[in-house]
Simulated scan of single mutants.
Amino acid sequence: MRSVLTALLAGSLCLAGLPASAGTREDVASFVQPTQAGRLAALEALLKREGLAYEIQTFEGGPKGKPMQGRNVVVTLGKGQRDLLLTAHYDAEVLKDGTLAGAVVDNAASVVAIIQAAKTLGAGKLKHRLRVIFFDQEELGLLGAKAYVAGPDGGRVAAVINFDVNGYGDTPFFADPKDPALAKAVRQACLAAAEDCLAFGAYPPSDHLAFRKAGAPETSFSILPAREAHQLWLFANAGKTSQMEAGFLPKVLGLIHTPNDNMDAVDPATVERAGRLAVELVRAADRTVK
């Protein structure tokens, strides 16, 4: 059954006659741009190609002392009194030399994954309104997410499912939700996707934290190789009791925010895996969250 389902999904994700993985790789690579505006243009091009209508919500952001307009990109699917949010940030880290990181692991891969999920979810019916949101200025302090929370739709949020760092590996891990209904949805989704998901009590900072501060149910998902995911759990959760060697850093922490975050690090199969998991997470949350 699983092999048949995988084949069907691969067929549905074929892009312009290319195998699914080849198309996925090209989509992720399109975000390697010299400017943030170029990354926004790459995102808009993918959404237009997939027939996903969107709006751009601007906000006042930028680093301290350097005001810069931010642009969140919002796709709205279906109707409902409350919103489920499926989110990922599309901006990239500015390196010390002033250039922009390729930022494909962090976080173009997740952007492509949730676009793939949106295509599938748009064909079904949900009780909630689904908003697929691509946040700007995450790397400057979650500014796009904070602006959304403070905006007119911040009070409609039923739950947030964020994706960050989904470029390579086979082991999903997540920020363990405090909300019982969302926690139940996460377990159901991992079971439905046949994934052994690893819960993090302390998960690296990402856009979900802006919603946590506002009291909304939230989680965030990543994928890494199994050994690296467990190493990162020790790094983030065990502290001085981790028994790791002095100076140890999981590989991903030496990859993101550096020139090495490039297409050499990306496995398209991981991106597609994240997209399928996102579908299951939204469907499960739609059932369990009010």
Rank of each mutant, 00 (worst) to 15 (best):
Thr171Gln: 15
Asp267Met: 00
Phe173Glu: 05
Gly62Pro: 15
Ala53Asp: 14
Lys119Pro: 13
Lys48Cys: 09
Tyr54Leu: 08
Lys125Ile: 05
Asn260Phe: 13
His89Tyr: 06
Ser12Asn: 05
Glu245Gln: 11
Arg273Ser: 10
Ala159Ile: 03
Val105Gln: 12
Asp153Trp: 10
Glu228Ser: 09
Asn72Pro: 11
Ala194Lys: 14
Lys290Cys: 08
Asn262Thr: 07
His257Gln: 09
Leu191Tyr: 03
Ser21Cys: 02
Ala284Trp: 08
Gly154Leu: 02
Leu191Met: 04
Ser242Val: 00
Met263Tyr: 11
Leu224Ser: 05
Ser30Pro: 04
Ile115Trp: 06
Val94Leu: 04
Ala269Trp: 01
Gly80Asn: 04
Glu280Ile: 00
Tyr203Thr: 04
Asp179Tyr: 07
Phe163Glu: 10
Leu277Arg: 02
Glu50Ala: 13
Leu232Trp: 10
Leu140His: 12
Leu143Asp: 13
Ile114Gly: 14
Ala192Asp: 13
Lys146Phe: 00
Gly154Ser: 07
Ala145Arg: 06
Gly141Leu: 01
Val75Asp: 13
Leu84Ala: 02
Arg2Met: 08
Thr219Ala: 06
Ala202Gln: 13
Gly201Leu: 01
His89Lys: 09
Leu52Pro: 13
Val4Met: 11
Ala16Leu: 01
Lys146Gln: 13
Leu191Ala: 15
Gly62Leu: 04
Ala278Cys: 06
Val75Arg: 12
Pro172Ser: 07
Ala101Gln: 03
Val4Gly: 03
Asp176Glu: 15
Pro225Arg: 12
Ser220Lys: 08
Leu13His: 13
Gln36Pro: 14
Ala118Met: 04
Leu130His: 12
Pro172Glu: 09
Gly38Met: 01
His89Glu: 02
Ala194Tyr: 12
Gly141Ile: 00
Thr87Ile: 00
Ala150Leu: 04
Asp207Met: 00
Ala216Val: 10
Asp286His: 10
Asn237Asp: 06
Gln69Asp: 12
Lys127Phe: 02
Lys119Leu: 09
Ala147Trp: 07
Cys190Arg: 03
Gly144Trp: 07
Leu77Tyr: 09
Gly17Arg: 05
Met1Ser: 14
Ala229Trp: 01
Val94Met: 08
Ala269Tyr: 02
